[in-house]
Amino acid sequence: MRKDTKIVNAGRHSKWTRGVVNPPVERASTVVFDSVKEMKHATANRGNQVLFYGRRGTSTSFAFQDAMTELEGGAGCALYPSGTAAITNAILAFVSTGDHILMVDSAYEPTRDFCDHVLKRIGVETTYYDPLIGKGIEQLIKPNTKLIFLESPGSITMEVQDVPGIAEVAHQHNCIVMLDNTWGAGVNFQPFDHGVDISVQAATKYIVGHSDVMLGTATATEQYWEQLRENSYLMGQCTSPDDLYLAMRGIRTLGVRLKQHQDSALKVAQWLQQRDEVETVLHPAFSSCPGHEFFKRDFTGSNGLFSFVLNRGNQAAVNALLDGMHHFKMGYSWGGFESLILANHHVGKLRTATSFSYQSPLIRLHIGLEDSDDLIEDLRQGFERLNQTLNNQ
Rank of each mutant, 00 (worst) to 15 (best):
L340K: 15
T127D: 06
G382A: 12
A320P: 02
E168N: 14
H261R: 13
G98R: 02
S29M: 10
H210F: 14
N9W: 07
F33M: 01
A44Q: 11
K146A: 02
E226K: 14
G11V: 02
S96H: 06
T43D: 12
W183V: 10
Y245F: 09
E109Y: 08
I156M: 09
F306H: 03
P143N: 06
I363D: 13
H194L: 09
R46Q: 01
L390R: 06
F192R: 02
I376H: 08
I137V: 07
A28E: 11
Q161H: 13
D373V: 08
P284K: 04
S14G: 11
L362D: 15
F306R: 03
R252P: 01
A93Y: 01
C77R: 02
A202W: 03
T127M: 08
M325G: 12
G382Y: 13
K40Y: 07
I7K: 02
M330D: 14
I207H: 05
Q273R: 11
G236W: 07
L215W: 01
L246W: 05
L244I: 09
I176C: 04
R121C: 07
L147S: 03
I176R: 01
E226L: 10
H327T: 09
Q227I: 00
G83A: 09
L342A: 14
W271E: 12
M248G: 10
G195Q: 10
N311M: 11
V318Y: 03
I101T: 00
T352Q: 09
I156H: 15
D116R: 12
G83R: 03
A90P: 06
F356Q: 08
D197I: 00
G98F: 00
M68Q: 11
R252E: 06
I137W: 00
Y108E: 07
Y129I: 13
G123T: 01
N303M: 07
S155H: 15
L362S: 11
S199C: 05
T84L: 06
Q172M: 08
Y206E: 11
C115M: 02
Q49P: 03
N314E: 04
G209M: 07
R312S: 08
D378H: 10
N22S: 09
H326I: 08
T5A: 10
R380A: 13
Y80A: 04
C115W: 04
I207A: 03
S61D: 10
A75M: 04
I101A: 03
R257I: 12
A218K: 00
S307F: 06
L51G: 02
T221I: 05
M103D: 05
D243Q: 14
N9R: 15
F94P: 05
T43K: 10
H41N: 07
K15T: 04
I101D: 01
L147F: 02
F295V: 09
G331H: 05
A269Y: 04
Q262N: 14
G368K: 11
D371C: 12
V318S: 03
H345T: 05
E377A: 15
R2V: 13
F295N: 06
Y233L: 04
A218Y: 00
V187Y: 14
A285Y: 14
N144A: 02
I251D: 04
N188T: 11
E279D: 07
V281G: 10
T5D: 12
S82N: 08
N303S: 15
K15F: 15
T221G: 06
G76T: 00
Y206M: 09
V104F: 15
N45I: 02
N188W: 13
K259N: 12
G123F: 01
G57K: 01
